[in-house]
């Protein structure tokens, strides 16, 4: 029972990171119908830029407290990633907006590998230790469950960001324009929405969220690496599909469900397979879920309007 509770907590933490990344996928997909393959790599860039920024701050302003250092590093990385997201949209995707659909998809794969290569050139192939500015020593166990301050921070920050995003999309002018663009580009632009701007904004917001997710991911595991974006990216995409792609609530739900399944599954896979499989097969769950969802319920848990797109 304690394992179950512990894995549930771990799953929620990982799941909320997936959810943040999944939001980026789902927003872009909702508006452009494009799977932005490079989204996972933006997470990676976010983590590595934050790492670099924190290193510099610690070098030049060692007196700054831990939390201000982290926040400064985080803001730098969010800004860099927003700029990156904008640049990618502007240079690669915008020109292909009216191109047949396989073209932007292949371009996105290319962008993903380009980002990885550039990161490899800048930061090398090695794993970097990510500074643990928020403590990772577990707090006093509650009901036998250990939770670390960094995990608490991840849960709180992602919850806040998700609420903020929902408010942005549902309550503001920008959000209304985004929904209109997702509904129908042409009509939205006839109603005076500058769709180019809205699409760019979507990429910028998504990239910002991915940067935050990257910093969280690295803070939790204590490492950063040029290829670290691939798996979380793929899992977040799975989460987005699981929840119903194009649907914000779905992405959040999908992220949490996926995190839970994965972490609880990894805890029990050895017993379930009679010792044949072990936790190194953890990554398989995401793909299995993706396959099952796409085959049996391609609209996802909460999706309804995408039936024709699957």
């Amino acid at each position: 029972m304690e394992t179950l509770l512990q894995q549930t907590v771990n799953g929620l933490v990982v799941g909320s990171v997936y959810a943040l990344v999944a939001l980026g996928y789902t927003m872009v997909y909702g508006i452009l119908g494009l799977i932005n393959f490079a989204h996972g790599d933006i997470l990676m860039v976010g983590a590595l830029v934050a790492l670099e920024a924190i290193r510099l701050i610690q070098l030049h302003a060692p007196d700054l407290g831990l939390i201000p250092t982290l926040l400064a590093g985080l803001s730098v990385s969010v800004l860099v990633c927003m700029l990156l997201g904008y640049t990618i949209e502007r240079t690669a995707y915008r020109r292909l907006r009216n191109a047949p659909r396989l073209a932007p998809l292949i371009t996105a794969i290319g962008v993903s590998f380009l980002l990885q290569t550039i990161a490899m050139i800048i930061w090398g192939r090695n794993y970097h230790t990510f500074p643990q500015l928020v403590s990772t020593t577990p707090l006093e166990p509650v009901a036998g469950v250990f939770i670390t301050p960094v995990q608490v921070a991840i849960l709180v920050v992602s919850a806040l960001l998700m609420v903020a995003l929902v408010l942005l999309v549902n309550k503001t002018r920008l959000g209304r324009a985004m929904r209109a663009t997702a509904e129908n580009h042409k009509v939205a632009s006839l109603m005076g929405v500058d769709t180019n701007k809205i699409i760019a904004a979507t990429f910028v917001i998504g990239s910002g969220l991915a940067a935050v997710a990257g910093v969280m991911f690295s803070s939790n595991y204590g490492i950063a690496h040029y290829a670290m974006g691939f798996m979380p990216g793929l899992k977040a995409f799975t989460a987005a599909v699981l929840g119903g792609i194009g649907n914000l609530g779905g992405a959040m739900l999908g992220g949490l469900v996926l995190g839970l399944v994965e972490s609880i599954g990894a805890g029990y896979i050895e017993d379930l397979s009679f010792g044949f499989l072990n936790s190194s097969y953890q990554d398989i769950f995401a793909f299995l879920i993706l396959g099952i969802v796409l085959i049996f319920r391609p609209t996802g848990l909460l999706g309804e309007r995408v039936a024709d797109r699957a």
Partner: peptide
């Protein structure tokens, strides 16, 4: 058999996942 009714980009992701699963199994 199960995936070919999916179209376009979904098929891409599922096949990508399949490739990774094969590699994970080979590795472990």
């Amino acid at each position: 058999l199960p995936t070919l009714r999916l179209r376009g980009d979904y098929l891409a992701i599922v096949t990508l996942g399949f490739g990774e699963i094969v590699r994970i199994f080979l590795n472990n």
